[in-house]
Each structure stands twice: as C-alpha cells, then as structure tokens.
Design a protein around this nucleic acid. Sequence first.
DNA 1: GCCAACGTTGGC
DNA 2: GCCAACGTTGGC
Length: 133
Amino acid sequence: MASYWLIKSEPTTYAWDDLVKDGTTRWDGIRNPTARMHLRAMKKGDKLFFYHSGGPKEIVGTAVVAQTAYADPKDAAWACVDISVADALKKPVTLATLKAHKTLKNLVFVKQSRLSVSPVSATDAKAILALAK
DNA sequence: GCCAACGTTGGC
DNA sequence: GCCAACGTTGGC
C-alpha cells in the first residue's frame, strides 16, 4: 500500500514545470532532520503532492517515488530520493482551500508550513484529489 | 516588510 | 545537557 507525502518547493528554485521537463529528478537539498526522516520512510511508488511555496501557494501536481532514500552525494549526512513526474492537477489546490477544508486544515503541512516533506493520510490524499478535479 | 514558528547554536 | 539568543523560513 502506497503512502502519500507532500513535498514543497520554491518555484524559483525548482518548479513543477522543471519536473515535467526533467521527467525524473533527484530530490535533494533537504536540510531538516524531520524532513529527512520522512524521506527515508518513503517507499518506491509512494505518491507525492508537489506544492509551490513563495508565489501562488498551491499544490500543482503529483509525482511518484522512483528511488528510495540514499545519501546525498553533496553531503552524506543528508538523504535524498529520486522522483518521477505523475500528473498535473486539473485544478491546483491552494493553501487557502486547504485551510478552509474541515479535515485538510489539520494536515501536518498546513500546521507546520516550514516542513519541506510531510506525510499525508490516504483519506486526506483522496480529499485533495477530489478538490483538484 | 512584518511577524510567528521553528531549528540551531553556544554559553554555562 | 539545558536553555536563551539568534537566524531562517514562509504566510500574510
């Protein structure tokens, strides 16, 4: 059973469009112990929600874990994973929408916006996908 | 540009 | 090993 996660990126650093272009990319540069823990818990095939911070704050697409966690080549103390692009959301789900939702407002990510990788329950994942239609 | 939340650092 | 001070991040 695949798990769901939410990963966050600044569009100016690495945008959804870059992932679409690259197809698969190394998700590195995570420098937070909690986020690293989540990275290491990822399994191949887990689904990822891709969120843009900074500009329009919204979930723009989904990706899948292509390679489970391994040491960051730039700094072995940290971990990274490989991810592959999945689908763009028909309708991006904004932070405001999440906050207005009765269960999604309790997402780890909503409550702790600084955390760059956070878990999403299967129920919440379904709710997000429903909002994105 | 401000402020709140959180992580990290350094003195003890 | 604790805790205060500081820096960074991200939403508003």
